[in-house]
Simulated scan of single mutants.
Amino acid sequence: MKIALIGYGKMGHAIEEIATKRGHEIVLRIRSGNRHEMTPENLQNADVAIEFTNPESARENVLHVLNTGTPVICGSTGWNEGLDAAKAKALNKNTAFLQASNFSVGVNIFFEVNKLLASLMNDQPDYEVSIEETHHTQKKDAPSGTAITLAEQVLDNLDRKRHWVKEKAESADDFPVIAHRIEGVPGTHNVKYSSRIDDIEIIHTAHNREGFALGAVLAAEFVAGKKGIFTMQDVLGINKNR
């Protein structure tokens, strides 16, 4: 499989290493200094593009690549307001699009555990929920996309909560999502239910970027040759296992 890397920072290098080990070829590497090489001709030479940049660039990058008909795997977070346009573009161009707040296999299993725990806590009003996440200082969006996904899952399954808020909840309908930025931390997410009697916590801790990179390559392998909008649940067959 031929892969175009849109964004060639630490994640791009990690993806390249995993993809090469799995027998794939990197045919295009786009950094801030060579964006002029992101031409339709170069993009169409790839079977799939993997986009890991930043919230400011992601929407433009994704729409540009999809417009050429090349499938896109996107790991940039913090641009949720542009996702509907990207999905519409993919369908219009008869290609594939998959965006995930986190590509780690472990995190996506963690998502399923989070949903189950929230549903179990729905009839336990004595427990208050909170989410904390810690990432490296280079991560621009806070809370992380993964933390927001976790929070939205809680809202979908915990009827007594209506909104998540940054840092401190002022209303009983709200719960806090707290973000920390510490040098060298790949990513830790903690969902906690606290009562006067005890606490229940689920935690996912990433040790390095390899899990994110592997998941992105697995997603690229999955969408190759497909048309439509996909999720990491599709890639991992999570729904099929239920």
Rank of each mutant, 00 (worst) to 15 (best):
V191M: 15
H189E: 10
I73C: 00
A147S: 11
D174I: 03
W79L: 02
N45E: 07
P186R: 07
N34F: 13
V177C: 07
A169V: 09
I30K: 09
T70Q: 03
S194P: 00
P71L: 01
S119Y: 14
M232A: 01
R29E: 01
I229T: 05
E133P: 05
T134C: 14
S171I: 08
P176K: 15
D173Q: 12
D123F: 02
Q124Y: 03
P125G: 00
E112C: 08
R59I: 15
A219M: 07
F111Y: 14
P143F: 00
K192Y: 14
N241Y: 11
G184S: 07
P55N: 07
E16N: 02
L28F: 01
F175A: 01
A49N: 05
V62F: 11
L91F: 05
N208S: 14
M232N: 02
R31L: 09
E210V: 14
G82I: 10
G145I: 07
V223Q: 04
Y193K: 04
I73F: 11
T188D: 04
T134Y: 00
M11I: 15
G69D: 03
E41T: 09
N108S: 01
G82K: 12
T70G: 02
T95P: 06
Y8Q: 10
G184K: 06
K139E: 13
G187S: 03
F52G: 00
K168N: 12
E60S: 15
T146C: 08
T146W: 14
G225V: 08
G215Y: 03
E183C: 01
I109E: 10
R181N: 11
K240N: 09
A88F: 11
V154P: 12
V65C: 07
L98D: 02
V217G: 01
N239A: 09
N122L: 06
K10T: 06
Y127F: 15
E152H: 14
N54T: 13
I15C: 03
S144E: 06
L28H: 04
T77S: 10
N208L: 01
I238N: 04
D199A: 08
E128R: 15
H136A: 11
H36L: 06
D174V: 07
N157M: 11
A219V: 09
E81W: 08
Y8N: 05
N80W: 10
I131L: 12
H207A: 12
K166D: 08
Y8R: 10
V235P: 08
A224L: 10
D47C: 05
K226W: 03
A169F: 02
D199M: 09
G184N: 05
V223N: 01
R31N: 08
I73G: 00
N67S: 13
I50E: 00
C74M: 10
P176L: 13
V165G: 02
S104R: 11
Q124A: 14
L91K: 15
P143L: 03
S119I: 11
